[in-house]
Design a protein around this nucleic acid. Structure first.
Lengths: 224, 224
DNA sequence: GACCGAAGCGAACAGTGTTCGTTACGTACA
DNA sequence: TGTACGTAACGAACACTGTTCGCTTCGGTC
């Protein structure tokens, strides 16, 4: 009528909508501007369309975030294991890669904590873990329970890390603030916390240690 | 003017606003109607007031949820330990109590994953944990790192459990759905997952086992 | 009896996820 | 060549959300 009949896709080479391009755009926004900026409207605007158009490819925001999580996990199963090493070192590397991948995108790890993993790449990670645990000689039940525990830990460690990375400008600041808060605590009410404030806030490779604790514990704790 | 000058608090024995009553009301709503129902407007309505009034006692929604978490943790430090038992059993009981307390209220455990604990009751829990770990003969650094790991696990385990409790009507249904999904997976792509589907979905006391794994691992993995 | 700090609150702002009904398109077929 | 069709895309709207501003009203103090 009043508007001239221009093609909807008149602009040069505008990529068509698809689930994958939506997921990728979501990850872009998440990395660039954080979790609060990840709205359906923002994703739509980035793709030069309206929010309603996204719902053809994505059931809702939760579905989008689940897909983003799986996309983020994609490189993990293909992490090159340190050559010529045993199952323990390879499992360790896999765990580190999973934590790293999830913690790199704010808020995605929380998604993993809320649902049994069913995504393609999450299942591949779990499959690799199971293979390594079996290689380590564990019986089926212990291996099954262990992979649950390991995956849970990976998600939790990533959630914690990404929260500190983004909420405060850097982890240093957040820890320093908490340290100061602990310093002001009454020792009669919190004797151990105040006494051990030094070690509690001392730097150190806790991620590596945590994974070692889990593997050592799993090896010495048969299920059932 | 037009409205008669009735006392704002004319109704019989209406409780005055306070941080504590707001927190308690929030927990009530959370337990009764779930996380989605926990809005500032809903809390205000329950207290027969407007949303603006809450901000005198609560900085924002996150602050409210943090306070709710700490309130939920209140009974944990006072869990009666099984009489005449060693530090290991008491630590185990403390962990179970913490997981239980956090998982009883949907979404609260996620709060614990996002911040270094500074609440009164959370710190008491941590203090108890540290005391028990020291009683177990651990050095200061290992005890400090261990309490980090234990608290993280408690929050994660609670988050996972409460998600399953509420998203599906009950855990049984959610697990059954995931089991069916796993059954349809191609074995050539996920050999271990499909092979171990039985043990993966078999029932069993994984919470207890998980805590045992952590304690065993901590005892055999000195920090640093 | 006048005053005053603060608690309480009505209304509004700037957004949110999601759905409805309609439009415009590429394709398949006559 | 012309037309019908399934569906992707979309504009507008709905029913909310957290939070803030500035006004009103209260209880307690000089």
């Amino acid at each position: 009528m009043s508007t001239p009949p221009v093609s909807r896709r008149a602009r040069p080479a505008k990529a068509p909508l698809s689930r994958e391009v939506i997921v990728r755009t979501g990850l872009d926004i998440l990395d660039r501007d954080g979790l609060d900026a990840l709205t359906m409207r923002r994703v739509a605007k980035e793709l030069d369309t309206g929010p309603a158009s996204l719902y053809v490819y994505v059931a809702n925001r939760d579905d989008l975030m689940a897909a983003m999580l799986d996309q983020a996990l994609a490189p993990v199963p293909h992490t090159a294991p340190p050559a010529g090493t045993g199952w323990r070192e390879r499992l360790h590397a896999l765990m580190r890669a999973a934590i790293e991948a999830m913690s790199r995108h704010e808020g995605l790890a929380q998604v993993a904590l809320g649902a049994i993993p069913t995504g393609d790449n999450a299942l591949l990670v779990i499959d690799r873990m199971l293979a390594l645990l079996k290689e380590g000689g564990l019986d089926d039940t212990t291996a099954a329970w262990a992979v649950d525990l390991l995956y849970l830990h990976a998600a939790a460690a990533a959630a914690e890390q990404s929260a500190y990375d983004t909420k405060a400008q850097d982890e240093q600041t957040a820890v320093a603030a908490a340290d100061a808060h602990f310093a002001a605590l009454p020792p009669d009410r919190y004797p151990m916390v105040t006494a051990l404030r030094g070690p509690l806030f001392a730097p150190g490779d806790r991620d590596t240690w945590g994974i070692d604790v889990l593997i050592n514990g799993i090896l010495r704790t048969p299920a059932g």
